[in-house]
Design a protein around this nucleic acid. Sequence first.
DNA 1: GAATATACGGGATGGCCGTCCCGTTTGTCG
DNA 2: CGACAAACGGGACGGCCATCCCGTATATTC
Lengths: 199, 199
Amino acid sequence: MANKPTATDAHQEPGRPLRADAQRNRARVLQVASEVFATEGLSVPVHEIARRAGVGTGTVSRHFPTKEDLFAAVLLGWMVRLTDQADALAETHDAETAFFAFFASVVHEGATHRGLAEALAGAGYDVETAAVRAGCDVSGRLRTMLASAQRAGAVRADITYPDVKALMAGCLSRDGDAPGPALDRLITVVCEGLRARPE
Amino acid sequence: MANKPTATDAHQEPGRPLRADAQRNRARVLQVASEVFATEGLSVPVHEIARRAGVGTGTVSRHFPTKEDLFAAVLLGWMVRLTDQADALAETHDAETAFFAFFASVVHEGATHRGLAEALAGAGYDVETAAVRAGCDVSGRLRTMLASAQRAGAVRADITYPDVKALMAGCLSRDGDAPGPALDRLITVVCEGLRARPE
DNA sequence: GAATATACGGGATGGCCGTCCCGTTTGTCG
DNA sequence: CGACAAACGGGACGGCCATCCCGTATATTC
């Protein structure tokens, strides 16, 4: 579980090597889309992303035939970061610490990337499965860590993965997304609730 | 705080008494809209509501010039029920019980009325202030009950109203909205987290 | 430096939906 | 019953947006 190449940018299977300017444009679009989706959310028109990237809408469409494809590509980047964190946490900490730390990680990531928060809240497309197909399974990590934490008696046994997901979405549904004391307060409250009641 | 006429349907100030069929149609539209918003959410086209109510789109537009107006009218009905419950709870129970019961009430109401859940999640228009203007202040009740519960030491002192709202939205962001054991589990978890840690 | 496939730009297209309007119908009142 | 205002229906309009297409530009290859 450590020899994964942390594929951050394979992207193009070498059927056709892709022209130089095309690579530049693709990368530029991806980066701009990432920023825009992060700060403005999923409702930003594709036109706008193209405009800010300094390319035509056709260029965007060609690289990412549909808006969902574009968002999936952006999301994948965020997901990769999260899975890397998850693996690191799982290796260096006990089940309880790892789970709660990862919970906080996901929420923080969502707080700084509005598109992620919206996707998590179900507002967006189903990218979860797309990400899994791309070999980046955040939900799988979360499920595993949840189960471990439960076996260790650190989390109530009756909690399920959808519960956790909903609670994460809840932390993110506060008005101002920006991370800060308010967000940490919410995380604390939820985590306290998740802990097994020691009687 | 008991002599409020629980205005469930004043609606039309008697500047013009409104023709008989108009009253019927208005009521029919309102009822259909209520059901549709409850089961399908806010994204249902106005055309569809008109169709199901057996009226033309013009009729809907005339009674509720904008979709937001229509939704506000529907929401008002739900809100009235909630404020009534809040007042009842506040009169017959101690601060702690009342607050947690009301929390559960709102969540359950949201679980059975998808439009409410979406509005709470911020997806919809700002009807909160509209409702307040209409003399039906759910958020006010919640704020008051929260403060009381905190004074009684039943809820962590650092919690704010937006926190509570976000947590309610979180409980509602689970996939299947239907109330049931899963929902109650979430409510329990969140409420446990909200309780002041007795050390 | 010419030839050619590849990629670009951004206008055109089509779908969706909220809102408005007007010719027609219907309730109401004398 | 007749006249008139009130209300109805649903088509028309306009805005928004994702996607597609094609004439033009440019990287690549020899």
